[in-house]
Simulated scan of single mutants.
Amino acid sequence: MVAMPDHPSPPRPVITRKDVARLAGVSTAVVSYVVNGGPKNVAPATQAKVRQAIAALGYRPNVAARALKKGSSRLLGMVVPKIGNPFFASLAEEVEQAAEERGFAMLLADSRDSLSVEQSHLRNFVDRQVDGVFLCSVLSNPDVGELEQRGIRTVLLNFSEDARAIDAIGPEFTRSSRQAVEHLGSHGHTEIALIVGIPTGNTLDRREIGWRQALQAMGQLDGRVYRCSFDRQGGYEAGQQLLASSPRPGAVFISSDQQAIGFLRAIHEAGLRIPEDVAVMSFDGSEEAEYCWPPLSTVRQPVREMAEAGVKAIIGPGRNTPPQSLVFDCELVLRRSCGCTAAHDAGQGVK
């Protein structure tokens, strides 16, 4: 047994800006200029003395107090439905990097595809007085009323095509999906099925709309639809359902790379080949699509451009403009899974 001291150790003294100024031989204002990078310039030699004093004393600025004084927490919040999804992980990474370049930190929250968890995260962001929120919601039309009432600018990410009362940024789903399905048709497939995530609202997924438009243009009135969760397990189960159907479709368009990875497993387990037995085209353009086997032909979303636009809308020039919807074109990346030649394996893109 470890003996406990009779008296607890006294708390460490709080190091203040005055302590730093006294050790460096400067005023507290100069310390503030060095810590905050302005607004006045400080001579390099003086800066060095202040930073040496900060290091020696272990001084850390009171971020909360500084935020209260300046009216800005320099914090941004982001909610994604599943951080384990490579697409949302990549999007969050790009948003965080764009925010960091502007001196902002980001709080990332995972709603786990739950509306109640999503709302709880948003309330937490309000309590923490973040300067803005990026929301990849489980709903097509989420309620952000409390954020608006508190003056917290909100950007919906991975949303597009419909005008909204708040900033919405995302890919052009419909035309991109139609082009992907038409490309499958160019390989001679006359029946192209759809594997698509189960919608959380009453709106039809834009990828499904694009698929239907492509079928109509090809002279087909309808096609088979397999609805499942937006993950690998969902794609795997949808693949098993497709394999049990007769006759089996010769091609399939899948609404996410994650679902497509699960679908590939179902096909491999059945001893079938891709694209010889079933050609595949998916949506998202994640790294996962490039490194599976065979490499997936996919619709690549411009993740970096969308993230940059979202950050600018909150802490850039766009923060003082009316909300707007920005729609970004996607890129068709052709690889082996759709039936293209090996020349496409490096990921040749088609705008």
Rank of each mutant, 00 (worst) to 15 (best):
L242V: 06
M218I: 03
G235E: 09
D110G: 05
K70E: 02
R212Y: 11
K40A: 14
T341P: 08
R128W: 14
V31Q: 00
D6C: 09
H268K: 12
D113P: 05
L108Y: 07
R66Y: 00
N41E: 14
D6S: 14
T200F: 13
P249F: 06
W211G: 00
L334C: 09
C340Q: 08
D131M: 01
A180H: 07
V14E: 12
L334V: 13
P323M: 04
A270E: 12
E191S: 14
P199E: 06
L57R: 05
S73D: 00
I169F: 04
V155R: 06
Q179I: 13
S9C: 06
Q324I: 06
A109H: 12
S140E: 15
V26N: 07
G77H: 10
Q241V: 01
L156W: 13
F263L: 13
H187A: 11
A346I: 10
G201E: 13
I54K: 01
S90T: 11
Q258H: 11
G37Y: 02
L108M: 13
Y291P: 00
R265F: 08
V35S: 02
S116W: 06
R17K: 14
Q258C: 13
S160Q: 01
H187S: 10
A89E: 01
A55N: 08
F159M: 07
V63P: 04
G188I: 13
G285K: 05
A89I: 01
L135R: 13
G201A: 03
P199L: 04
L75A: 07
R22Q: 15
V31F: 00
A24W: 00
P86Q: 02
A168H: 01
F283G: 11
S137V: 03
V252S: 09
V181N: 10
I83A: 13
E118F: 08
V280E: 12
D257N: 03
G71N: 03
L57K: 06
V333H: 05
L326I: 11
C340Y: 12
V350D: 14
T341N: 13
W211M: 02
A109C: 14
A65C: 03
A313I: 00
A251N: 06
A109V: 07
G210N: 07
I315A: 05
C340H: 15
V350P: 00
A168S: 11
F328N: 06
G285R: 04
A289R: 02
S160D: 03
A270H: 08
T16F: 01
R153M: 02
I15C: 09
V303A: 10
F104M: 00
L204G: 08
N158F: 00
S116E: 15
P11L: 02
Q149Y: 05
T321L: 14
I254L: 08
P13F: 00
F134S: 10
S286G: 08
R336N: 09
L242K: 05
A3K: 15
